[in-house]
Amino acid sequence: MTRTKTSGEKQLWPFETVGTKVNGWVDDLGAVGIFLLRAFIMVFRAKQLPSIVQQVYYIGARSAPVVMLVGLFTGMVLGLQLYYTLVKFGSTGALGSAIALSLIRELGPVLTAIMITARAGSSMTTEIGIQRISEQIDALYTMRIDSLRYLVSPRIAASIISFPLLTAFFDIIGILGGYLTGVVLLGLDAGSYFYRVETSVEIDDITGGFVKAVVFAIIVSTICCFQGYFTHMRTDAHGAKSVGLSTTSAVVLSCVLILISDYVVTSLLL
């Protein structure tokens, strides 16, 4: 989120710009943190279940086809690429393990999160953003309906439910995709493929993958809702344009943070 520049003496550059920018980031971070906390607490209030179910439909169920399609092709391309690499070591038997582990530990959670961001995250930002600029959120205020509870909490809750489920779909279909290329196409032994899958995957890998999925869920939903909710505070644009910019920021920021947090969580788990 951009900030209007404070006037300052020129000789303090670049310290002042850097300082202001960092201050800005810390402020934003604090704001996002409080936003998340308050919205999360509201998840457990009454009357939320129907809205949460609705949001699971839009965020989860409707993203399923896309996620499964991407999962299939990811698995298939992994099958191809890894086969030709493993052939050089004479270890094509390890294809099952390689694919399963890559998907379950990394590609499943990350790619699922990115696909959902593109689909549902962007629409969260836009919907809430438009409601903000057309004063609908103010209208909720005048009716003493907490807009955070009504708009944001269900989306965060639905994301936490949907991301792991969709990640599981991605993983399973990805492994099947690897089967399609590795076994059906390239002639690997089906038995050993699935055997390797079963034996090499451990419970830690699976829980690790789902922990990542939940972390990503929280990041994506919070950032996308936050950007939409405060779109009126942008100084660089107003009206429809600000909603557009907010959506772009939300999607980009979400994807970047998915990858950064992926590293952080991975290093914590290993």
Partner: peptide
């Protein structure tokens, strides 16, 4: 209760 100039309907 408040009624907006632009209606602010959902």
């Amino acid at each position: 209760s408040y009624c907006f100039q632009n209606n602010a309907l959902f």
